[in-house]
Design a protein around this nucleic acid. Sequence first.
DNA 1: TTCAAAATGGGTGCTACTGTCTATTTACCT
DNA 2: AGGTAAATAGACAGTAGCACCCATTTTGAA
Lengths: 216, 216
Amino acid sequence: MNIQKILVADDHPIFRQGLIRTIESHSSFNIIAEVNDGMQAFNKIKELKPDIAILDISMPSLSGLQIVKKVQNLNLDVKIIILTMYTDEEFFSQAIDLDIKGYILKESTAEDLIVALKNVSNGGSYISPSLTDYVIKLGRERRSFIKAKPSLKNLTPTERKILKYLAENKTSKQIGDDLVISYKTVENHRANIRDKLNLKGLNALLKFAIENKSKL
Amino acid sequence: MNIQKILVADDHPIFRQGLIRTIESHSSFNIIAEVNDGMQAFNKIKELKPDIAILDISMPSLSGLQIVKKVQNLNLDVKIIILTMYTDEEFFSQAIDLDIKGYILKESTAEDLIVALKNVSNGGSYISPSLTDYVIKLGRERRSFIKAKPSLKNLTPTERKILKYLAENKTSKQIGDDLVISYKTVENHRANIRDKLNLKGLNALLKFAIENKSKL
DNA sequence: TTCAAAATGGGTGCTACTGTCTATTTACCT
DNA sequence: AGGTAAATAGACAGTAGCACCCATTTTGAA
């Protein structure tokens, strides 16, 4: 196995320092670039063609997952490891959909990171142990073809827009005024969203909107 | 100036690695302990009496701010630098109340961290530049004696409890049943909370409860 | 072009929250 | 002992969201 060329993208300098030290202490890996935002990451990947790119999910200008989409569109042969703070099922599910090989949490140890790098460089995969619940859950859902997962993906653009307004705690009437449509139309959208997301009862929709507004 | 003894407490091993590397590259600082949870941090501070303790806010078993309170109760002469992911005004305000000298964000650069350490070790203070808005705001509020800040601190224990239930999207009736009190009482608490927090309009309270549930 | 999904607008009854009151009982502090 | 804050309970009117229905128009893909 050749020495693996690694690109590291993370907007937290001190954490990035930790990553680099950890990785460079192993002779089989060589860091060829470190960047602190998404656009830089994408450009460097195009230019330097690393074997593995370690990407933070939340970065300025382009998120880790957006980078992956752009890289895959260009058919570049780069293995991706996603790094994230959060044990967020939605992000995780998206990452799996994008066929990402490594998904590790920032709370992982240096040893875990190295294991992940070795697995991925050998064509395997690595997912942080704390996420195994999600793995099992996703596997079950997809095997049973239920598509029971109530997800934002199923919503239409207009429904998403309504959700954004809801997260700001606007009433149907206010939203109707803002969008220049009838408040009844807004309430119909609300009903459809509740239906798709399987939300029942008063204010369950508002709760969902607030808790998920960062993903809209 | 003697060499400063530093304790580092953070539950993310890779980030901790970055911290340590950064700090040890300067000869005026010596790391005497690194720990990954709050109780360990407190015990090591008691035992080793470092000059400066760098504490993550969110850690298992004891948060950074809780550690500070316990340390101050013992009258230990340890300078504290708080590290955090979030630009959260509530935490920041609490930290200032606790007379913490350093408050820096994890997105800071290695240079910023060193500046913070030097300032604090010389009896000064350091606050991440992104937080200057808060600094100014807090200063203004306290100078003008308004206490206009609608804060969770003003709430009674029962009101806090009600907020927790609200964040779970329970109705007044459900909450009343759970606590074995009349639903009218619950609605009175709601009204009082809205009043104290200056929340107006339908669902503004629910929105607040959901957005602040982590602090309850 | 034809068909389906999405967006638009509406009706009706019910329930929960809001705003604005009053009032009583505890509990704690001076 | 007296006073204050907190917790308890209630009345009453107004508004918004929800859960059912319904129909029409616009849009886009097969």
